[in-house]
Design a protein around this nucleic acid. Structure first.
Lengths: 256, 256
DNA sequence: CGATCTGTTGAAGTGAGTCAATAGTGGTGG
DNA sequence: CCACCACTATTGACTCACTTCAACAGATCG
């Protein structure tokens, strides 16, 4: 495992015009993800120190950003685009443990190696930090640690929801939950939550929901025929009956 | 939801003889869970402050310690015994998202309500803290926040393992993983890891692994007949072929 | 306008669930 | 100490939701 296939050249697509040698954190202030990200919790001084250890990078889908079991030397902040977090079994079975969106943090671990891979679902921009230097920022900036704890707590709560979904929900309930979750998350980021964007493939959805692509496809078709959703195309779903879909999400539609 | 059924009387079963008004943190120094718990990261001064806001409690199995959706006013530290963390669907389907052991922390959230219930699997001793006052300790004691972040990160990694298990593993692989996990965790706490103790019922194991009690029972029997384990009794398993069981854990035994 | 993906649909198979009976296990009281 | 009860665990027969295997359709692209 290595980074041979990685586009390693820093990229400044979202950096504002101010030259970095005058205000090194200027592009941070212009970063659209900053409001949701951990770096949004930092004061100007800390932000400048963070900026000094930051490498901005771009990956194109479906490049791998983090390789499972690789030495965990960097942490990343997702600025734009979508990534998937995956775990593999030796025989190739794959489980996606989550999709990450702008503002999300990757590489939080205090072990030596990453416990998962991260791959670009769409083209992505991200900020990369050396983990050891980032940790040392904790000393001066406890609000950063506070924010990371809050983010980890949220992720944990989301992981527990996913455990409930995988352990006890039917395929139908999983798909309803998935569509509603993506919709809510888009709303939370201030994006359009009704025609729900599904940037990932059916295979990704299947590996996230613990199903096969065929079951995902069939179940979406069925929800469409029942009039709960409308499949505008393979990657966009309109929610027609939010109330009914929310019933399906928790199995409240099984009695009639 | 309330605490009518809760044994709310403080209990000092593991408090050492030093009277609390002379050294309020003396019983902390004698607490066997402290080495693994977040409070083990505190210096003496912070420990005394923590001690002042602590209520020691005992619950008997199968009492409920935390009710899902209740207002999240307290956090807890498990000192002895085992608890299960559960989530329910409206129709009664249950998923156990994890079992907690001495030293584990409960109630970490920055939402208003708990996202899960916590119930005693065995009789348990725990320390209860008001969440708001505990948070205020963060200011003076950043090492506490550091420790909680590390613990949350570990839990997240464990949750991702469980997601892989629930999404992609067979019943056989799930049981092998479960036995090995309990064994490794016991070792990590310095307890006996070979005759593995299963303090929870088959129903608990089923609801943790996303299976039914029948499948759990059948699969354990089968692993026994194949000579990988020996069921000493319903709540104790001896590992006979660790190597083979580790193959089963990741599906490496499916080819022959 | 073929080639190659990605997604959909159909038919058949299967691992785990459901339903039901039986067997341990532990606690209680006569 | 044993008989009884309540509860938990095991085992068997049958069912079914989802998978597997396979064919087909749509989209994207050189």
């Amino acid at each position: 495992m290595n980074d041979q296939t990685i586009t390693d050249t820093p990229l400044h697509a979202y950096r504002v015009s101010t030259p970095p040698d005058i205000d090194p954190a200027a592009h941070c202030h212009a970063c659209s993800a900053r409001f949701h990200a951990f770096c949004g919790a930092l004061n100007d001084e800390a932000l400048i120190r963070l900026s000094a250890m930051t490498t901005e990078m771009r990956f194109r889908a479906p490049q791998t950003i983090i390789y499972e079991d690789d030495s965990a030397e960097h942490a990343y902040n997702l600025c734009s685009g979508v990534v998937r977090v995956t775990k593999m079994l030796p025989d190739g079975r794959r489980q996606i443990t989550g999709f990450l969106f702008p503002g999300d943090f990757m590489g939080l671990t205090h072990k030596d190696a990453y416990g998962y891979s991260v791959e670009a679902v769409t083209d992505v921009d991200l900020c990369r930090f050396p983990r050891d230097r980032l940790m040392s920022l904790f000393e001066e900036s406890p609000e950063m640690e506070r924010k990371l704890l809050a983010m980890a707590t949220d992720e944990l709560s989301s992981a527990q929801e996913q455990i409930l979904l995988l352990g006890r929900k039917t395929a139908r309930e999983r798909l309803a939950s998935f569509i509603l979750k993506l919709s809510r998350m888009a709303n939370g980021r201030g994006e359009q939550g009704d025609p729900v964007a599904l940037p990932m493939s059916r295979a990704d959805i299947a590996d996230f929901l613990g199903l096969t692509i065929e079951t995902v496809s069939r179940t979406l078709t069925k929800l469409g025929k029942e009039g709960l959703i409308h499949l505008e195309n393979a990657h966009s779903v309109r929610i027609l009956r939010k109330d009914k879909l929310e019933d399906v999400e928790v199995g409240a539609d099984r009695d009639q």
